[in-house]
Nucleic acid binder design. Structure first.
Length: 545
RNA sequence: GACCCUAUCAUCUAGCGGUUAGGAUACAGCCCUCUCAAGGCUGGUACACGGGUUCAAAUCCCGUUAGGGUCGCCA
């Protein structure tokens, strides 16, 4: 390329490649330390797969004593969304995925290998692109979208592989004169990489998660600099991950087929390629078919969905960890009280190679477990925090009755595996505890339809007279038994079973009457605890028929 | 269409040439029990199919089928 062409291609002064390199020295890390990153696009949407990849990357880096950083990939200006940085920072932060370097919410950098926003690195990409052009490894291309469309149609029609390669790479062989003429005429252009690959030849790529894969070499001259002057993903990936010292690139499966290209790019640029690990997308069943979780169609593809529903962050993390390494469950069993982040993530054990179904049932089970281990105070705080955002009226109510609600949440909250496990997500709590508040308590006498009205009255009145708030559970229950005996219900289950016809019913029936009267439901947690929390006055009012 | 990945219970998976094919979740039954939940115990027609290799195959090879991914100036 002549200097004149270069001037058209790169009109502005650019830093020298050597100077850039000098600004990004090799990271001083101990042997074996890994450098990883999470590199989302600021589209205002955080995919759960991004959290999954981020979590794996973060764990791998930090457990090796390395560095984990955040890079904003905003080279597609069309897709930028206001406030997207907040979404990214909040999402990662919320799940405890903390970057050592990256971008603050206000767009400023932290860390020595920045800028960490690609649109701020335009000059850097340009400098390397210019270098490639000078070395004859890249060239300007004037093909329009229509040209390329037509090309693909022709290729498809002849049963050929689509793409800008071989004899279809028309601009590849343009003479300097032709190029100059087009530039002078003001024709729009992009920069393409002159691929040295041969599709007939094969190469082995090593994937950390999938093992060795044999693939054809890449022979497509992909675009490296778009017409707006910004790089494509491929080019930015090579330049940034080299400069920022990334040792392990963990990214979605959709990049796997680009690896031959990426390796070429690294070689052409004189960089050492990182190690790659490609993770399969999370899937769901739709109409009997498996497909990947789609941003457009599936609410649960957005990590925000899980906050809205009120799944504890720890539950989502544990679920994801379980997908990352299936032995997480065994580890959790052996280490029930250790933070999930202490789990030693093992690269070679990453399950989910083919793409797992996202399983809400499993998440629910993990979530119940996580919540059951929390103290009532912790549950209260998390619940209130959630409600403030997603159920303001409920937040107001529980905010006004902190001690009362904490006591409610403490019912049957014990230690270890004895704890009550019935809360899956914060969203569910409101309807679970309606009967603790007079304004939402609903008396439901229909539930007592099978009973003789006199018996119901006798039970209610009788128990109201006997009830003493200071009774412990045993005394409390003994009173119910005594009451049962006094009105013709069996207090002893064995006796009842031996002769059902000899009684009106049994203690269980008596307890049910009390439960329905007090809670308006047939099912509830331990009634004695409920009455304690409710308080004597409220309980006795409800026993009045 | 081409290229690539994957294939063990309903789901997530363990397994890496010789196992009564293990676990977790879900489901069912029983026990416990004032109901529910929890807990304990028990249970089920899981190695996609067809060929090889081998004394021996869920494990290795080939093919078929199925599912997934990719073939952009999106990432």
């Amino acid at each position: 390329m002549t200097p004149e062409i270069l001037k058209y291609l790169f009109p502005n002064p650019l830093p020298a490649v050597a100077d850039i390199e000098a600004k990004y020295p090799k990271r001083a890390l101990k042997e074996g330390a890994k450098v990883t990153r999470v590199a989302p696009s600021p589209t205002g949407f955080m995919h759960i797969g991004g959290i999954y990849a981020g979590l794996l990357s973060e764990r791998v880096a930090h457990q090796s004593g390395g560095v984990f950083y955040l890079r904003i990939e905003d080279t597609d200006q069309k897709r930028l969304v206001e406030g997207a940085l907040e979404v990214i920072a909040n999402s990662l932060g919320r799940y405890g995925i903390v970057a050592d370097e990256g971008v603050h919410t206000d767009g400023t950098d932290f860390g020595a290998y920045g800028p960490y926003t690609q649109s701020k690195r335009k000059e850097i990409y340009q400098a390397y692109a210019k270098d490639l052009v000078q070395k004859g490894l890249a060239y300007p291309c004037f093909a329009t979208a229509e040209d390329l469309d037509l090309m693909r149609k022709v290729q498809e029609k002849s049963g050929l592989r689509p793409g800008y390669y071989g004899k279809y790479a028309k601009c590849r062989n343009l003479s300097d004169e032709e190029i100059l003429k087009k530039l002078q005429a003001g024709e729009p252009w992009v920069l393409r990489f002159k691929s040295p690959g041969d599709y007939e030849k094969r190469m082995i790529i090593k994937d950390l998660l999938k093992g060795d894969i044999s693939m054809p070499e890449n022979d497509i001259d992909i675009v490296i600099i778009k017409s707006d002057g910004l790089p494509t993903y491929h080019f930015a990936h090579a330049v940034d991950d080299h400069l920022m010292g990334t040792t392990h690139v963990i990214r979605g499966d959709e990049w796997l087929s680009s690896v031959p290209l990426h390796i070429q790019l690294f070689v052409a640029l004189g960089f050492k390629a990182p190690k790659y690990g490609h993770i399969a997308p999370l899937q769901k069943v739709d109409n009997g078919h498996k497909r990947k979780l789609s941003k457009r169609h599936d609410a649960e593809a957005n990590i925000m969905y899980f906050w809205e529903k009120g799944y504890p962050e720890a539950a989502v993390i544990e679920y994801l960890l379980n997908l990352i390494n299936a032995n997480f469950e065994d580890w959790r069993k052996a280490n029930p009280d250790v933070p999930a982040f202490d789990f030693p993530v093992n690269f070679s054990k990453v399950s989910n190679v083919a793409g797992a179904l996202f399983d809400f049932v499993k998440l629910a089970s993990i979530s119940k477990e996580v919540i059951a281990k929390m103290s009532a105070a912790e549950v209260y705080d998390a619940l209130l925090n959630w409600a403030i955002s997603y159920n303001p009226s409920f937040a107001e109510k529980i905010g006004a009755h902190k001690n009362y609600v904490t006591a409610i949440l403490n019912i049957e909250r014990g230690i270890g595996n004895k704890s009550r496990k019935d809360i899956v997500k914060w969203e569910d709590v409101e309807k679970d505890i309606t009967y603790f508040f007079d304004d939402t308590f609903m008396r439901n006498m229909e539930l007592l339809n099978g009973y003789d009205a006199d018996d119901v009255t006798a039970i209610a009145d009788g128990f109201a007279r006997m009830y003493d708030e200071n009774d412990d559970k045993q005394v409390w229950f003994d009173k119910i038994k005594r009451l049962a005996d006094s009105i013709g219900f069996a207090s002893d289950m064995k006796a009842y079973k031996a002769n059902p016809a000899g009684y009106k019913g049994n203690v269980s029936d008596v307890a049910k009457v009390l439960r329905v009267l007090i809670t308006g439901r047939e099912q509830s947690p331990d009634l004695h605890s409920i009455m304690q929390v409710l308080g004597r006055d409220k309980a006795l009012v409800r026993l009045k028929i």
